[in-house]
């Protein structure tokens, strides 16, 4: 085993981790926001809005992310409206294109996950909130969202991990994140095995950390489902 080569490769790849993390965090953030909008449209009861949301979810869940990314990166520039608009300086950047397509895609999945969470909120608890005088945003903020989020968290954790892995696709639209840098190293050294193993190890470590954080969050938010002793500590008598 060529320890020197491996450590050198690792060092080079680690320098690309910030780019991967930036891709990941921006797309999870904007994708999450967009998902909230889509799920709001989906459950709004307005046939036009919910129809749009259904269509959106179908398109972005039903087609390959790679093709979506290519369409954004190579496709958008073909439209004069976009090419000559104020948006072009942004949309011409590979990073922006990658974040945009990752966010658009995850929003479709996340919206469905959030919707499942909403449906799991017990009607009784919603009724109790209404009976006390809550409605509209207050009801969403205090009861619907917190309960729905708890129900959605396990499935949403999976989606977040998938997003971390999907950032690798950004290498194909020339973003120099971990996988992109790995491919460049391979084309220079022809040592596929070592370089990709190093890259895989980096993703494993990142996902391990993310899953640990999410598991902690889930633990903290599920006190009410655990045995009393573990939940509240010794109860004052």
């Amino acid at each position: 085993m060529d320890i020197a080569f491996l450590s050198q490769t690792m060092a080079t790849l680690i320098k690309a981790v910030p780019t991967t993390l930036l891709l990941f965090s921006l797309s999870v953030f904007f994708g999450g926001l967009l998902a909230l909008l889509i799920v709001w449209m989906r459950v709004s009861g307005n046939p036009l809005l919910s129809g749009f949301a259904r269509g959106y979810i179908f398109v972005f869940r039903g087609s390959p992310l790679l093709i979506q990314m290519f369409l954004v990166f190579y496709g958008l520039g073909q439209f004069g409206v976009i090419r000559y608009s104020f948006l072009w300086p942004f949309l011409r950047e590979p990073m922006v294109c990658a974040v945009l397509s990752l966010a658009l895609c995850t929003a479709g999945y996340s919206a469905e996950i959030f919707r499942a969470g909403l449906r799991a909120v017990p009607t009784r608890e919603i009724e109790a909130a209404r009976a006390i005088g809550m409605s509209g945003f207050l009801l969403v903020r205090r009861i619907l969202a917190p309960v729905a989020f708890r129900h959605a968290l396990p499935a949403y954790s999976t989606e977040i991990v998938l997003m971390m892995k999907s950032t690798a696709l950004a290498s194909l639209v020339t973003v120099w994140e971990v996988t992109g840098v790995a491919q460049r190293l391979i084309s220079q050294t022809y040592r596929t095995m070592e370089v990709f193993l190093c890259a895989a190890l980096i993703y494993l470590v990142l996902n391990f950390l993310i899953l640990q954080a999410l598991a902690l969050l889930e633990y903290a938010l599920s006190k009410h489902r655990r045995a009393p002793s573990a939940a509240a500590g010794p109860l004052p008598r």
Binding site: R124, E127, A128, I132, G133, M134, I143, V147, H224
Partner: peptide, 19 residues
Amino acid sequence: DHIRSELGMVFQSFNLWSH
């Protein structure tokens, strides 16, 4: 909302917020 806040309701199955 105002009227509901003035009328206390107690349900058959308690309906406490479980979280």
